[in-house]
Design a protein around this nucleic acid. Structure first.
Lengths: 205, 205
DNA sequence: GGACTCATTGACTGACCAGTCAATCTACTC
DNA sequence: GAGTAGATTGACTGGTCAGTCAATGAGTCC
């Protein structure tokens, strides 16, 4: 807890909290949040059952932590991209790149976040809808800006366009998660281009 | 079970099996499949707990039935549309229309199917991936045909295009499910047009 | 009206699992 | 080396709930 203690902890012992989070990602990805037991997480992490409850108040909090950690990074990226004075196409391309690279780098984590949170309308999705929405709103803002600049058609409402754009990306990840699409570097790169090409092609004036 | 008995049943008693399925839709939509109890479904339907197990082998089978019933109708629609000699844009438009109208007509059912099945990679989604995939493949086939005719660019692989198209639609439904987008008739119609316009705009040669 | 079949009821059980807690260990301080 | 605080352990508990089943009801056929 104290600021001075944390570095000392990390220096000597393996960070058990992190160990538990990483194990949880693998277990959630493999079995799903509902189907797995807390003991599965503890076993996967190689720690005692009770230690999970030393670091987290509940099973839910483990998933909340994973989601918030990752989503915060994504929101930062989007804000950063948005601050640059570059064409919308590049902005949307950077977002698509980031999400697809996130999947490429840690497919299990992205699978968990998408399957268990952003699409779980009756559980975690509902809890975090405010945070999720921030991303849609930021993307929507970029589209409004592009419309004001005359780059995008004004007939397509920004909120719809943002949903369609984000939805297309998430569905590609879903395709990879379900193993319906090939997962190699060439395809990941192609997918980035495809999403931007398709959606921007349809939105441009 | 027997062919002669079914109509007699339906004629006199309210069809309890249907009553249970309809109640399940409302309960699953409200609480989610995992969070609800079988007794919630029985209560909602106004029947005894045990009757659910008279008609269905398990809680899972109730959801399976709901999904398969609906998805069969959608596959039929897609095949029917595909058989017509009309432009791709119209074919894809008909599919978008059908899905969006399905939501408009029975939002709870579509919410359940999307949230609990087509996006549930670790449970029902996995069980039904073959059936779900049929839809993607049919849409992919339409896109290939359009590419052969020179209407769509060949650079964008059909599987990717199909996922992007279907993903954009599903995300619109998700927007409605999460109450992030307005839900009135004008918006539903606008959404049909938007999806087709956006995706076809990006795919056309 | 007796015999049969299927529909319907709801109390009960057996398994499962999230979360608790008291005990033990480890490391650091004075 | 005694004292303290946090880390770690895992057996245990309490509640929940899917699925079972024996009993009862209702309709049909002869």
């Amino acid at each position: 807890m104290s600021a001075g203690r944390a570095p000392a902890q990390r220096a000597k012992a393996p960070d058990k909290r992190r160990l538990i989070l990483d194990a949880a990602v693998r277990v959630f990805a493999r079995q799903g949040f509902h189907a797995c037991r807390v003991s599965d997480i503890a076993d996967e992490a190689g720690v005692a059952y009770g230690l999970v409850y030393h670091y987290f108040a509940s099973k839910d909090e483990v998933l909340d932590t994973l989601f918030l950690e990752r989503w915060r990074v994504m929101l930062e990226l989007i804000r950063e991209v948005d601050a640059n004075a570059i064409p919308v196409r590049d902005k949307l391309g950077a977002i698509a790149s980031f999400i697809i690279d996130s999947y490429r780098h840690d497919p299990d984590l992205m699978k968990v976040i998408i399957v268990e949170v952003t699409r779980a309308a009756n559980s975690f999705g509902n809890t975090h809808i405010g945070t999720i929405r921030e991303a849609y709103d930021l993307i929507g803002g970029m589209i409004v800006e592009a419309q004001d600049d005359g780059v995008f058609k004004v007939e397509i409402e920004s909120r719809f366009a943002a949903m369609a754009f984000y939805g297309a990306i998430e569905q590609l990840l879903t395709g990879w998660i379900f193993d319906l699409l090939p997962q190699d570097d060439e395809y990941f790169e192609r997918a980035k281009w495809l999403v931007v090409e398709t959606v921007c092609g349809g939105l441009e004036a």
